[in-house]
């Protein structure tokens, strides 16, 4: 692996240190994408549920607990993203 990397580095004119640094950078970009994109997904999913939940609560206050619970269920998506991000950065 190292030998191949060295050869590749020689090819594009990068040192081993530069490759290591760029790998860290790529991981950071991956982690950012994981959290960012899942965040957008969660937002889209919660839009409909939240709007419906607020509508239901406006008519009947008893729906508050249930409405809140359903609204935050898509939150799991962003948590998956966060976990993936953390794994990328710290493992």
């Amino acid at each position: 692996m190292a030998a191949e990397a060295v050869i590749a580095a020689v090819d594009v004119g990068m040192s081993v240190e530069q490759i290591a640094a760029s790998q860290v950078g790529m991981k950071a970009i991956g982690a950012g994408l994981a959290v960012g994109l899942t965040g957008i997904g969660t937002g889209v999913a919660e839009m409909g549920i939240g709007a419906a939940a607020v509508g239901a609560i406006a008519e009947n206050k008893d729906f508050f607990g249930l409405g809140l619970l359903f609204t935050v269920i898509p939150e799991t998506i962003v948590i998956f993203g966060l976990v993936v991000g953390l794994l990328l950065l710290f493992l």
Partner: peptide, 20 residues
């Protein structure tokens, strides 16, 4: 149409309908 105000008002109408 999936804009939030539409969803909100249509849910309210369904809730009201269930109270008839």
């Amino acid at each position: 149409n999936i804009s939030a105000p539409y969803i909100y008002v249509c849910t309210r109408m369904r809730m009201r309908k269930s109270k008839l």
